[in-house]
Design a protein around this nucleic acid. Structure first.
Lengths: 209, 209
DNA sequence: CGAGAAATGGGCCGAATGACCTATACGGGC
DNA sequence: GCCCGTATAGGTCATTCGGCCCATTTCTCG
């Protein structure tokens, strides 16, 4: 079964999947219709676009999987987006392909998911890995709140240095360290070094070693 | 090409993959041999066990992919392990299957990876998602080092309380709070509250709100 | 050229902090 | 019954910490 809001894409998919030996039992133009048709037609596999009017593909997937866990759902998307990918698989999707893949690839994916396996486009597998890898730097830093020097001070404090030790390592006086800290407290709305460091970790400014 | 240190498994794979229409051009018994044979035979796909003598499958994958990015490598493993999965895909593996999957599933996986896509066993896709989801609770707490009371103190400190405030909230004296902190410092090898809280966060004892 | 930010530094002060010592009470386990 | 860990609490002390006042230099940007 197909679920996509673009007629041209649906027709293209229908033709190529039919050529590949699949039967298209129905087509939905939005998430609501996908849910209704899935119930009515009980397809083996649904090729579902992520972005659709009314109800998006992820939500439709969630609802269909609740009622009919046996229906395998392959999400199609225009762009490799880790967030959406995670949401889609959490919703129960068995596959996630970017739309520029070949009809052969889609056919292979369908054959894969009906066997209970999961298929990801390579770009998405990569981006998923990125997400796993970066447990740090979650924020691309909309704007640099903390200056370079302040960041150095913060990092040293996080690494276990006291004020005198930071001063020693940076070759500045304790007073300057305190001044930097005071500035940091203001910017991070912290009232002591502990809160400042925690806030900095949350914001991805500094990293736990 | 096959790479596995168990003869029985290699022979089983060779037979079933041959039945599925694939040609097995070579078999390796360890990671070193896999690297040498991959270079010599230039297989389209390698089915590679993760655990092998000499050089493990992940490292062999990395080295083969550096020299021959065109060779697709499907990792086989006994257990669903997120860490290894991440390492494997970072090393360049195109697929990651648990060994209890059917020969049909392996065949489908091979056909999928030669098309440039990525295949994950559903258990692994699930565990990968878990890893993404749980940005907290990374350690299952091998043993409870910190007592319940100490944990309460730590969490309050992490939430921004000073010693007097912790005392107030827990209805104990400041002195007791300090005693708990001193005990915590010993156990976490920290010398101040900042280090204690950071260490506790690293160990998953407390959570950033 | 002047405004403003960043980085450096000083002094003062009260509160918080951490190290060191002690002590009592309540559990459970050997 | 005794030991040990946990939780409670006290005291002393030097150090650190953070708030508040201030200043100088350098640099960039408009």
């Amino acid at each position: 079964m197909l679920a996509d809001d673009h007629r041209m894409l649906r027709e293209g998919l229908r033709r190529s999947m039919t050529d590949q030996g699949f039967d298209i039992v129905g087509e939905a133009r939005d998430g609501d219709e996908a849910i209704r048709l899935a119930e009515e037609l009980q397809p083996e596999v649904i090729l579902m676009d992520v972005t659709m009017p009314e109800v998006d593909g992820v939500e439709a997937t969630r609802q269909i999987k609740i009622s009919y866990p046996g229906i395998a759902i392959v999400m199609l998307t225009m762009h490799a987006d880790q967030e959406v990918l995670a949401a889609a698989i959490r919703a129960g999707a068995s596959g996630y392909l970017v739309k520029d893949c070949s009809t052969d690839e889609i056919a292979t994916a369908i054959r894969t998911v009906v066997r209970g396996e999961t298929v990801l486009s390579p770009q998405l597998a990569a981006s998923m890995l990125e997400e796993v890898r970066k447990l740090e730097e979650p924020s691309p830093d909309e704007e640099r709140v903390i200056t370079k020097r302040e960041e150095e001070v913060l990092q040293l404090i996080a690494n276990g240095c006291s004020t005198p030790e930071v001063a020693e390592r940076l070759f500045i006086s304790q007073k300057t360290v305190k001044n930097h800290l005071a500035s940091i407290y203001q910017k991070l709305e912290a009232r002591d070094r502990t809160q400042a460091v925690l806030q900095a970790v949350r914001m991805g400014i500094i990293h736990l070693e």
